[in-house]
Amino acid sequence: MNTRWVRAARWYLRELTGESAYDRYCERHRRHHPLAPVPTRREYQALRTLHQENRSHSRCC
């Protein structure tokens, strides 16, 4: 039972911090672009931020 709690807490923290989003992105990138290099975590964060800033409906003002 202790192992189950640890796994659940780890999953929750990875989802909360966005670490799992990068992992999902890498899997999707490898599947759709097998010959292209996978962006680093820093490059992914920069792309994600740029994408969010360019979406006009994501801001309140």
Rank of each mutant, 00 (worst) to 15 (best):
V38P: 02
L47N: 11
R31F: 04
A21G: 02
V6I: 11
N54A: 09
E27Q: 05
R7N: 15
R10Q: 12
R28V: 05
G18W: 00
E53Q: 15
T17R: 03
R28F: 10
R28E: 15
H29Y: 09
T40Y: 00
Y44P: 00
Y25P: 01
S20G: 03
H51L: 11
H32K: 13
L50S: 12
A8C: 13
S56A: 15
W5I: 15
C61Y: 14
Y25M: 01
R48K: 11
R41A: 03
E19D: 12
H32N: 15
V38L: 01
Y22V: 00
G18L: 02
L35S: 10
R31L: 05
Y12Q: 10
V6S: 08
T17Q: 01
A8N: 13
R55K: 14
R41Y: 08
H33G: 04
Q52D: 09
A9H: 05
L16N: 07
E43Y: 04
R31Y: 06
A21N: 07
Y12T: 06
R31I: 03
R41L: 08
L13N: 10
Y12P: 00
E19Q: 10
C61S: 14
E43M: 06
Y12N: 06
N2K: 10
W11H: 14
C60V: 14
Y12M: 09
E53Y: 11
Q45S: 09
S58M: 15
Y22I: 02
A21C: 07
V6Y: 08
R14H: 02
A36N: 03
L50W: 12
A21I: 02
Q52F: 02
Y22T: 01
W11T: 12
L16T: 09
A36R: 10
R31D: 04
T3S: 11
D23G: 04
V38K: 03
Y22P: 00
S56T: 15
R24M: 05
R59L: 08
S20N: 07
P37Y: 01
S20A: 06
H57P: 04
R28D: 13
Q52Y: 05
S58I: 14
P37M: 06
H33V: 01
Y44M: 00
R42C: 05
E43N: 04
T3A: 11
L35K: 07
A46K: 12
T40L: 05
R42S: 11
H57I: 06
H33N: 11
R42W: 10
M1T: 06
H33R: 08
R41T: 04
P34T: 02
H33K: 05
L13P: 00
C26P: 03
R14W: 01
R55N: 14
R7Y: 13
E53T: 10
R24Q: 05
Q52I: 02
W11Y: 15
N2W: 07
T17W: 02
Q52H: 06
S56C: 13
